[in-house]
Simulated assay, not measured.
Amino acid sequence: MTHAGVVPACEANRLNGIISPNTSRLRENHRRIGREQEVPRLKKDYVHSLKKQNSPRLRKDRGRVALFVDEGNLFHAALSLGVQVNYARFLNYIMEGSQFSGAFLYTAVKSDEHRQQLQSRVDLEGYQIVGRKIIRYQDGSVKANLDVEIASDLIIKAFENSYDTAVLVSGDGDFTYAVKLVKQRGRKVEVISLSSMTSRRLIAMSDHYTDLSKIKHWICN
């Protein structure tokens, strides 16, 4: 052993009170994914035929592996599947048979104390918590955006030669360009996310794609 947006306050129920990501943004992502699926050259069946969904543990050419978890995206994907991710099992699953180069969990935090609580959690051992404090508005909604941090770390660590393979846990199509730049540096990028919540362009740009629903039994409680 990596979203701007507004969320209803009633959705504050993950990772010991971390606020869930922007609901309106997720709806827009779904609309964008729908539009992408209309593009003939990126039809779902075609893209999936390019990306064999083998378990990462079956491949041995990954070199140094770094894990980047978009916690908000993963939370909603797990919610859709009706499961709860066990982060320790997830990390072990991803890194099995590979050289560990880092694991980064990008999430909203309520306070410095909350960040320390996350860092002390046994199931998050091995992860570096990358958080941004949430902004609360008078209408009860909150805002937290970590896309910039995720994309920046993917690119910077590739240029620093910190990893050979990046595992990006997110379906957000906004990361497509960052993945393209990382691959231009000779790095491989694997994407893990729920198919129905994943940009087809992101899948096409990746070297390997895994539908979260296919591995839920190995990474969930």
Rank of each mutant, 00 (worst) to 15 (best):
L91D: 05
G171I: 01
S98M: 09
T2V: 13
K214F: 05
R41Q: 12
E160T: 09
L146N: 07
D70N: 07
R14H: 12
V69C: 07
S24Y: 06
G97S: 03
E160C: 11
M205D: 03
T210N: 11
N161S: 03
K51E: 02
F100I: 04
G5T: 06
R136F: 11
P8V: 08
A144G: 08
I135S: 04
D139R: 04
P21E: 03
L118G: 00
S193V: 09
R187Q: 12
A77M: 06
Q84N: 08
A166S: 02
A166T: 04
Y137I: 08
W218C: 14
D139G: 02
K60W: 07
D207C: 04
G63T: 08
L26S: 08
A77D: 10
E11R: 12
S55V: 08
Y163N: 02
G126R: 07
I135Q: 07
Q117G: 12
A12E: 12
L26I: 15
R14C: 12
S49G: 13
F104S: 00
A204C: 09
S152W: 13
S111C: 01
L212D: 00
Y46H: 12
Q119D: 06
V7E: 12
G126I: 01
P21C: 02
V148Y: 13
I33M: 11
G171A: 10
F90T: 05
A204L: 12
M1D: 14
F175D: 02
E36V: 05
V109D: 10
H3N: 12
D164Y: 07
D45G: 02
I192S: 04
S199M: 05
S193D: 00
P21K: 03
A78V: 07
S111M: 07
Y163E: 06
Y93S: 02
V39Q: 06
G171W: 04
C220Y: 09
C220N: 00
R201D: 05
K214P: 01
K44W: 07
R115I: 03
Q99R: 14
V83C: 04
K180E: 11
N54R: 15
E190V: 11
Y87H: 03
Q99I: 15
K110W: 13
V83I: 13
